[in-house]
Design a protein around this nucleic acid. Sequence first.
DNA 1: GCCTTATATTTGGTCCGACCAATTTGGTCC
DNA 2: GGACCAAATTGGTCGGACCAAATATAAGGC
Lengths: 241, 241
Amino acid sequence: MSANNTISHEIATTLRDEILRQQYRSGERFPSERDLAGRFDASRGAVREALSQLEQLGLIRILPGGARVQAVDAASIAILGPLMAQDDFPDAALVDQFLQTFGALISLTAKNAVDNGNREQLNQLEDMIVEISKLAGDFEAMQPKWREFLDYMATVADNLVVRLICNDLKAQFVEQMMKLGVKPEIKKKSLTLLLNSLKLGFRSKDGELAACAMQNHFDELRVAAAQAISYKMASFHKEAV
Amino acid sequence: MSANNTISHEIATTLRDEILRQQYRSGERFPSERDLAGRFDASRGAVREALSQLEQLGLIRILPGGARVQAVDAASIAILGPLMAQDDFPDAALVDQFLQTFGALISLTAKNAVDNGNREQLNQLEDMIVEISKLAGDFEAMQPKWREFLDYMATVADNLVVRLICNDLKAQFVEQMMKLGVKPEIKKKSLTLLLNSLKLGFRSKDGELAACAMQNHFDELRVAAAQAISYKMASFHKEAV
DNA sequence: GCCTTATATTTGGTCCGACCAATTTGGTCC
DNA sequence: GGACCAAATTGGTCGGACCAAATATAAGGC
């Protein structure tokens, strides 16, 4: 993210972080475009584009007479990534909320996939699981196959709303976790159980089973993620001392 | 939405709808800023701001050399509202997906509220339900109280991720449904059952019960909405002939 | 004819200076 | 203290200009 090395993006990123760090009170007047242009030594056009982006994020409201800062919890999902990257290690509570939400949506997707998918699609899903099972243990090698599976399952489930939400969530979350180097570890035993349950769910057209399996998996992921973060936090503080 | 009567917003709205109507193929080159400026008889600056908004929506990708159109299902949630308003009556499938997703998230919120809320908060929630129960039957009068309840429940649940998603969904959905005049009708009996289950859930700290009640409610809402839409569709076609 | 290379064109990113309309601000007057 | 009016501020838009990167085009070599 923010790899776009344009000035307007840079300004937007800086201002976004300032707002997320609560450097402005909600409802407070935001500096004028001309002031910001002076501060960043940029043209007003560049500042305007940056502000336009912040407005899209729901962080400010621009209206003639001046822009105003909005409450963070009234913003768009797109602020979650930056919010999580605010510190050197991810906010454990936020990650937990993330996984919980993601789990609920993936679980719903699994259910829909079973309910809406035809025989051929379900067989395909089953085959993909078998492929993944073969790679169980090799986390790195499994990752792409796993994503591919989730993606196809979303296609079969055919719920655009969930799909769009998951797009945003993935974009916000996965990237941050990768960058911060948090890798929750799941026991092989649990993984096997998940895969088997999913396989059975697709084969016997049991949506509830597949949904439950996913739900359980994400509940385990939450625990694992919490551990991974607390470990990372400990090592960070150690290093600081 | 799009009540902002600025030129750049107007351009953005027009182009957004064109993309949503599939007038450009995914991956295709988007007209240049200068061409668009000529077409809309506006300055390049105004066009640039519009394009910047489209990029935030995930509908196009701007890069030196030209902007490219992206696949709709890779966009942001914020396109759901416009997508739903594309026709004279809402897309039944989309509304159904919407309610299903919303239901899953509200259900999760109910569970979290019960799990995370303290005694005082749960009592407050219970009181709000009693208030709503008194207004049962009067749909219009109930609406604000109901929203207030959902909002407070979200506060108690304290899951920022879900909250932000619901912000976006509500902004996209509720407004459209209101504008299109679709009002799903829920039987008073079902409503009473929902309220009683919720009350019991909060009182006895049974998160599963509250979650299930919400889930059931939204499942009924889906059916009701489908009926309301099909009715609206029929009357529309009748009127057209 | 096909492929590579060099050139010209297009395109996005940025800047400047200017103007308008609406809001905000400050002062004045009652 | 409150209502009213004028000046300063602010966002919205315009036009023209320049740069660097990417694209399309023409020229050249095989």
